[in-house]
Design a protein around this nucleic acid. Structure first.
Length: 965
RNA sequence: GCCGAGGUGGCGGAAUUGGCAGACGCGCAUGGUUGAGGGCCAUGUGGGCAUUACGCCCGUGGGGGUUCAAGUCCCCCCUUCGGCACCA
């Protein structure tokens, strides 16, 4: 081909030319009074922490592509952006740099806005909000007061998690893996007067309404479900021997007869009064140790269970057994009533604890598999025992140490009697599993009560002699290897040894026992949640002040709405501080009586700021109200919300709670804030870690992946990009080298957006190469295109032309579906690449149809426009159009072009692909005709040879499958 | 331990409803262009046996099953990642 001189792809000039174009033209400005064809797209707003890396970029690029796509489809798009600007990092950075957090924040916001501009990501900046501005946090305070009015914000004295490093308390949700989610320091318990939002009141609705969120990822819904942690069961009241009461929560009221002791959390308020004088010092020491132990130690399941006896006893309400009361740190004061009834036979933790401390273990539920096993020591019976048993039809195995009998469920009694009859004098045996009993010559003793347990131990001790050490029947059994795995189970099964409830089955058992407890006034059905109320007080400066005043006369007084905002005092910033450290801040007068009063000196958790921001975007500049009900009712719920999965619990749960509360208050007409949620994956990159000197920048790593300081080999794990791991990729460097369009393209192409992906240098070069090809292809073709026409006439096209024509329209259709319905940007990009490849091939022909070339080039540029907007603007002009692709609109698909004249259909013989036949579209669509065509095809006949056709299956448009003999 | 999402060439990934596995890209190989390098272009590229032609066999973490047909559905197991985790 004659070399055609085309200027190279000068992405720098192109991107500079269009960077401000879209904003200047106001393509993405929207009036929220609009009611037709509206679409609210929202990315989780960022924390302005310095600069955004290519991983952050992924999030916003996806949004920008969607926004441009919907804009081309003619929607009124709302896609606003703001800043989650309050919070600790600003304070910490400010402390490091000796400047005010506001200054640091404002600077970062300006930088990030510039980054968006460089990426070609356009927002309606008239709607910009920053949570640290008084005209925003004024309404955060309003929200607080609304919740207060409804009784959903309340103050209580509570033991809370306090991070000594960050010098503030943390919400339950902010303690991650036993450490502060900001700095990792283990929080200390501290008792303070704090504000809470009563999210637990919404636990059921938050749980139930998850079912209405059909377009949320299953994983996020599950995480919220687990977090709310609803458990159904019963509260049961035990009387203490001294006449007090002790309430516990259990999910297994059917196991009550097996409760052989009780355990209180060390912090339980009744511990003091239950402790008898002789146990005082031991209890005090244990409690002290437990309180000091960090949560990490305390929460480990691996840890040996420890505890101390209080000296007191309770009475089991169902069988009047006298059972000891212990304290142990495996019981949490924060869950249920902070006390449990221990059923060691059917709760793994109680089992371990009981074995450790010699407490009786009484099985009261049959195994679901109904297995039973008896063990008879060799010395306990005669040598003919094995024969006797098998003659009796009982499966028996002789082992080194004894005989093992595995009777079927209804043979257990027979087996036990047989064993008993054969026992030598002074010997004993046992049976476990679905029935537990000890077998003596003169008695069969089931361990179904504490007294029976004692008798068994006494008898065995007597028969065994001085070497006997076990304290309980179960302890004896644990020394028999044949019983491994059969001594404990937590199945739901038939009740036994439970008075008149014995024989009650499975789930009915819970119901029956609960009903009986209620009737007897000993307990009642109840539900317990893992979720706790949301602690929102923070002892830090950089947040929204809590709008409450304390008056000596009037008590707790909310700041009147007209006095909002309660402004953050504008003071020089010196080190870690809260509002309490600012002289004069707290002093005020009571809005009620005018007398002297003090302000609350805490600020709100920043998750309060972000729990309602999606509402503010609708009327961001309204100075009289947080939002206009009529407008939010139209625009909300957000049509598509996109963000990181790290917010699956905190932010999303809080936002759902706030929306429901506002609904109940009559401020909004919807109960869920986000109709569809998409959680995009993280971008990972190689990090370099020297075992001695920690994280290294890639450029500092010496030859052969060695540490420049010590020469040791560095590890190169993959991690999501983070400054601390020194593995971030700076977009400015990418944009400088290959342009924003190439970064955008690569970001979308490298993998499905919900999955984590690894950033690769080669990958981005490939995307850059593709854009160069598109640039050259379209530039070269520009002079050969027909003037703008109605499009190609299929009747005038030859086979190659028709194939391209169909490719064009199939591509438009696929890209539309991939973007709109499937969030599958990587396959959309590959479809565009295929179109470009086919177009280039066709264009090699000198007689290429100019109308078809026009149609193909125009559509190629248009489908590329949302993804690579800079290049698309440039090429669109280059091929003779005026205005932006955004105005041209999304190309229409010609339906006839989606079909085909002939179809290639594979033919399978006995499940293996053996031939392909080419048939007309009509034949391919008709099963009978297709089958006939296949059988008549010469190729198929040749492949078949001399066989009998047993069965023929023709699937229209798909394939033909022949079964032959 | 419980819950969730994954496991497909050398790599990222595709296969949307049970119907031709490996689209698209990266990398690699060979050739071309070039003074050279880079870049670009062309061709090839799952493994094996063949290469006389077309071909034939194997192949989606492992094992079993359903089906004319399984990456896709069912059962069991292994493994990676994420969340929760002494929650009674």
């Amino acid at each position: 081909m004659a070399a055609h001189v085309t200027e190279p792809y000068d992405f720098k000039a192109i991107e500079a030319r269009w960077r401000d174009h879209w904003t200047e033209k106001g393509y993405f400005r929207v009036d929220t009074k609009a009611r037709d064809n509206t679409f609210y797209y929202l990315n989780m707003f960022p924390y302005p922490s310095g600069y955004l890396h290519v991983g952050h970029g992924r999030n916003y690029i996806i949004g920008d592509v969607l926004m441009r796509f919907y804009r081309m489809r003619g929607y009124n798009i709302l896609n606003p952006m703001g800043w989650d600007a309050f919070g600790l990092p600003a304070e910490n950075a400010a402390i490091d740099r000796g400047i005010h957090p506001r200054e640091w924040t404002v600077k970062n916001i300006a930088y990030a806005k510039d980054q968006f501009r460089a990426w070609g990501i356009v927002y309606d900046w008239d709607r910009e909000i920053a949570t640290c501005e008084p005209d925003y946090y004024r309404w955060t305070q309003w929200l607080f007061l609304e919740l207060y009015k409804k009784g959903l914000a309340y103050r209580k004295r509570a033991t809370v998690n306090y991070c000594p490093q960050c010098k503030t308390v943390l919400a339950n949700e902010q303690v991650v893996g036993g450490g502060c989610d900001r700095c990792g320091t283990a929080p200390e318990p501290k008792t303070l007067e704090q504000w809470f939002f009563k999210i637990t009141e919404y636990a059921d609705r938050l749980l139930d309404d998850l079912a209405t969120l059909e377009s949320w990822p299953e994983s996020v819904k599950k995480m919220q479900e687990n977090w709310i942690g609803r458990s159904e069961g019963a509260h049961v009241t035990f009387k203490t021997e001294k006449g007090g009461e002790l309430a516990v929560f259990t999910t297994r009221p059917d196991t009550l007869w097996g409760a052989t002791f009780m355990v209180l959390a060390p912090e339980h308020p009744l511990v003091d009064s239950l402790t008898t004088p002789e146990h005082k010092s031991e209890i005090a020491a244990y409690r002290d140790r437990a309180l000091r132990a960090s949560d990490i130690d305390r929460l480990s399941t691996e840890r040996e269970k420890t505890g101390v006896f209080t000296g007191s006893y309770a009475i089991n309400p169902v069988n009047n057994e006298r059972i000891p009361i212990w304290i142990a740190d495996y019981v949490l004061v924060t869950y249920g009533t902070g006390a449990i009834m221990a059923v060691p036979a059917h709760d793994e933790r109680d089992f371990a604890f009981a074995l450790g401390y010699g407490l009786p273990i009484l099985p009261v539920i049959e195994r679901a598999d109904r297995r039973a096993r008896a063990f008879i020591p060799l010395s306990a019976v005669g040598a003919d025992f094995e024969k006797l048993a098998s003659d009796d039809g009982l499966p028996v195995v002789k082992r080194e140490d004894g005989y093992v009998l595995d009777p079927a469920w209804d043979d257990v009694n027979r087996a036990v009697r047989l064993v008993q009859g054969e026992l030598k004098s002074g010997a004993w045996a046992s049976v476990v599993g679905t029935r537990f009993a000890f077998i003596f010559q003169d008695a069969i003793i089931a361990h179904d009560s504490i007294a029976a347990d004692r008798e068994i131990v006494a008898r065995c001790a007597l028969l065994t002699g001085a070497s006997f050490h076990a304290r309980t029947a179960m302890e004896i059994l644990t020394h028999i290897p044949a019983y491994e795995g059969l001594l404990f189970h937590a199945d739901v099964g038939t009740m036994q040894h439970s008075g008149r409830f014995s024989g009650t089955r499975g789930h009915q058992a819970k119901e029956a026992v609960t009903a009986w407890l209620e009737k007897a006034g000993k307990g009642k059905k109840s539900i317990t949640y893992r979720l706790h109320d949301w602690l929102i007080s923070r002892q830090r400066y950089w947040g929204a002040p809590i709008p409450i005043i304390y008056c000596g006369k009037c008590g707790e007084v909310p700041v009147p709405e007209k006095d909002l905002p309660v402004q953050l005092p504008d003071v020089a910033f010196i080190g870690k501080m809260g509002l309490a450290d600012i002289p004069g801040y707290a002093d005020t007068t009571c809005p009620n009586c005018g007398g002297p009063a003090r302000r609350d000196t805490d600020t709100m958790d920043t998750f309060v700021d972000s729990s309602w921001y999606y509402l503010r975007f609708i009327n961001p500049n309204d100075t009289r109200q947080a939002f206009v009900r009529d407008d939010v009712d139209h625009w909300l719920p957000v049509n598509q919300y996109v963000g990181g999965v790290e917010h699956a619990i905190l932010h999303l749960l809080y936002s759902r709670f706030v929306t429901k509360a506002l609904y109940d208050l009559g401020h909004v007409g919807f109960q869920e804030p986000f109709a569809r949620l998409f959680t995009q994956g993280m971008v990972c990159h190689t990090a370099y870690k020297c075992p001695e000197h920690g994280w290294l920048y890639p450029k500092d790593v010496a030859e052969g992946n060695r540490c420049p300081t010590c020469g040791k080999a560095v590890e190169t794990p993959y991690f999501s990009m983070s400054k601390s791991k020194k593995n971030v990729v700076d977009p400015s460097e990418i944009i400088d080298r290959v342009g924003a369009d190439a970064e955008r393209l690569y970001t979308l192409f490298m993998g499905p957006p919900d999955r984590d992906i690894e950033w690769s240098e080669e990958g981005i070069r490939g995307s850059f190469r593709f854009l160069n090809r598109v640039w050259t292809l379209v530039s070269d073709l520009a002079p050969r295109l027909a003037p703008r026409t109605a499009g190609a006439d299929p009747a005038a096209l030859d086979a190659d032309g028709l194939a391209l024509w169909r490719r064009v329209h199939r591509t438009v259709r696929k890209v539309s579906e991939d973007i709109q319905d499937r969030f599958s940007f990587n396959t959309a990009v590959s479809a565009i690449m295929e179109l470009a490849n086919d177009l280039a091939k066709y264009a090699e022909r000198p007689d290429a149809d100019p109308d078809l070339l026009r149609e193909a080039v125009d559509r190629l540029v248009l489908v590329l426009a949302p993804i690579c907007p800079f290049l698309a603007e440039e090429l669109w002009r280059k091929v003779g159009h005026e205005g932006s692709p955004l105005e041209a609109g999304w190309p229409r698909v010609i339906e006839e072009a989606l079909g085909a004249d002939t179809v290639e259909i594979p033919v399978q013989v006995n499940g293996k692909l053996r031939a392909r036949i080419t048939v007309s579209a009509e034949i391919a669509a008709d099963a009978k005709a297709l089958e006939k065509a296949a059988l008549e095809s010469a190729d198929v006949k040749a492949k078949l040879g001399d066989v009998t056709i047993v069965k023929a299956i023709a699937v229209p448009n798909k394939m033909v499958s022949l079964v032959v003999k």
